[in-house]
Nucleic acid binder design. Structure first.
Length: 492
RNA sequence: GGGGUUGUAGGGUAGCUUGGUCUAUCCUUCGGCGUUCGGGACGCCGAGACCUGAGUUCAAAUCUCAGCAACCCCA
């Protein structure tokens, strides 16, 4: 177990987070423009592996496309509700050289208005449906609040947005379910626990009929939205005139959905699994899954022959692991072993193998797991299957731990209605400062605002898939009328 | 949306109150050489900085204003 830690995740998450981004070489925040950052090679590899999982899931029933960054003003402005939600956040390109542009071009804040005019010409017949596409692009939002690397940014560098069009409302609803399943699968592979809610009407995606959202709880107790899924219905189809000819010859509007995930999913992996020693990456997405540290300078005696043997053994093991598809790195740099341990722990490598002369004499090596620093000896002949087994185990362990943390951060309030006492409210308020409070609230915006103000929280929304056996209806905490179970929390 | 703090080598800092021997401190980092080496080694040599702009002044890292950026708090 490493004796020294400098970082303190629990006491000061903010500081921990920015230190980790720097020390683990995920993101360089020194670019001199507010809210935009540079991906280091290591961070970019992590991003790439995470998005490869997402793509492999999407590719089963979506096709990847690439739409332009620039959107003409008139298209962007077409959907009234939509633009209302975004207009204060749009970056504009107004000049070409020194020439003022006749029609200003927006940097996409999201791509509905870039994609849907093209859907109009792509979609002619019911045979063109369902149409399911996605792209992974950068989008720009002029955030006025505090920007935070990967969490609130002005350039979203990794916005995965899927857009689908269907012949019927039922088909679109079905797609929503598929998207939920897909996102669940994705976050499970990242070992990230989540809650799913239906956002309140006053907080849905601008232009959508309703929005579902995945949120996770960060170490400081605030929630972070990590995925959203929207049923657009016919609203955009009517605005952009996206129609198809049905079997009976009738022209009908398509029914649409869209759903997105951004680099916040990378932030969640970093924030949720890491500890005071640095990152802990789920093996699935770790750029280096196994680091092999040769212990080559045995004290006392002429070690030359041993040095060679140790190095050879390391590379032999690496070859075997690589053949088994495991991303393996041999750190035979000049540093002392301890310095290497610290570095790779900071970078979150899930499993470290140590091979020294002592091990070699016994035909074994040592495994050290990043998540709990447990150390075991493994015979060299069993390294490959043992590595596979251990990596799987590590994934399960960090997933379980994260799920437990999330569970413990959900506070259910039973039986507190509109007649609640000041003490009960104070208790709720206290709980809401750290994690999610679960309570009954009606759908009215007034009650939502009232609750948000009194508890200092945001309403996440109605619980999407309530647990079986749980009481899911009650009197609204504010007005005591019939209400459903909702989640609320301080949110990022 | 409102308020506050900060900006000095790649990273972290001292100096700023009271302008002048600041030719800018210390730690870390980086390059070289040597001794080391089963949890962040040590010695010697070398490299590297006052956010940008304007102002005040004989003189600005230090004072004033603006910009840019980062961080924190409240709503």
């Amino acid at each position: 177990m490493p004796p020294e830690t400098i970082l303190q995740k629990e006491n000061n998450f903010s500081e921990w987070y920015s230190e980790i981004l720097k020390r683990a070489e995920i993101l360089d925040i020194r670019y001199p423009v507010k809210g935009v950052y540079v991906w280091y090679p290591y961070g970019y590899k992590l991003r790439k592996l995470i998005y490869e999982i997402l793509q492999s899931l999407l590719d089963k029933e979506h096709e990847e496309v690439l739409f332009p960054l620039l959107i003409p003003r008139d298209e962007l402005m077409k959907e009234k509700e939509h633009i209302k939600g975004f207009e204060e956040e749009v970056f504009w390109v107004t000049k070409g050289g020194s020439t003022e542009l006749e029609i200003p071009l927006a940097l996409r804040p999201t791509s509905e208005t870039a994609i849907y005019p093209v859907f109009k010409v792509w979609i002619r017949s019911h045979r063109d449906l369902p149409l399911r596409v996605y792209q992974i692009v950068n989008t720009f939002r002029y955030e006025t609040k505090h920007t935070r690397p990967l969490i609130r940014v002005r350039e979203i560098t990794s916005f995965k947005e899927a857009h689908t069009a269907h012949a019927s409302r039922a088909a679109a609803e079905d797609q929503i379910k598929r998207a939920v399943a897909l996102y669940k699968n994705f976050f499970d592979q990242l070992a990230i626990p989540y809650v799913i809610t239906r956002r309140p009407d006053w907080d849905k995606f601008p232009g959508a009929e309703y929005s579902l959202a995945f949120d996770t709880v960060m170490p400081d107790g605030r929630t972070m939205q990590i995925g959203t899924i929207h049923l657009l219905g016919e609203s955009f189809a009517r605005t952009f005139d996206i129609k198809y000819e049905d079997k009976d010859g009738a022209l009908k509007f398509v029914n649409q959905t869209c759903y997105g995930i951004s680099e916040r999913c990378v932030a969640s992996v970093i924030a949720i699994h890491g500890d005071d020693h640095g990152l802990i990456l789920p093996p699935e997405v770790a750029p280096i899954q196994v680091v092999i540290v040769p212990i080559v300078f045995s004290s006392g005696g002429e070690g030359n022959i041993e040095v060679k043997q140790v190095e050879e053994a390391c590379f032999t093991v690496q070859e075997a692991l690589k053949k088994a598809g495991i991303r393996t790195f041999v750190d035979n740099s000049e540093e002392r072993p301890g310095a290497k341990y610290y570095r790779w722990e900071m970078k979150g490598v899930p499993l470290r193998l140590e091979i020294g002369p002592r091990d070699l004499r016994n035909n074994r090596c040592e495994f050290v797991r990043r998540n709990d620093f447990k150390r075991v000896h493994v015979p060299l002949s069993e390294v490959v299957p043992e590595v596979k087994r251990t990596l799987k185990e590590i994934h399960e362990e960090i997933h379980e731990k994260a799920k437990e943390t999330l569970r413990s951060n959900i506070h259910k309030s039973e039986g507190i209605g509109a007649d609640k006492s000041a003490e009960e409210m104070e208790e709720l308020r206290r709980r809401a400062g750290r994690g999610i409070v679960s309570l009954f609230l009606c759908e009215r915006e007034r009650c939502g605002n009232e609750l948000e103000e009194q508890l200092g929280v945001s309403v996440l929304g109605e619980v999407y898939e309530p647990e079986g056996g749980e009481k899911n209806e009650g009197g609204c905490l504010i007005c005591s009328e019939k209400a459903k179970r909702i989640y609320a929390a301080r949110a990022y």
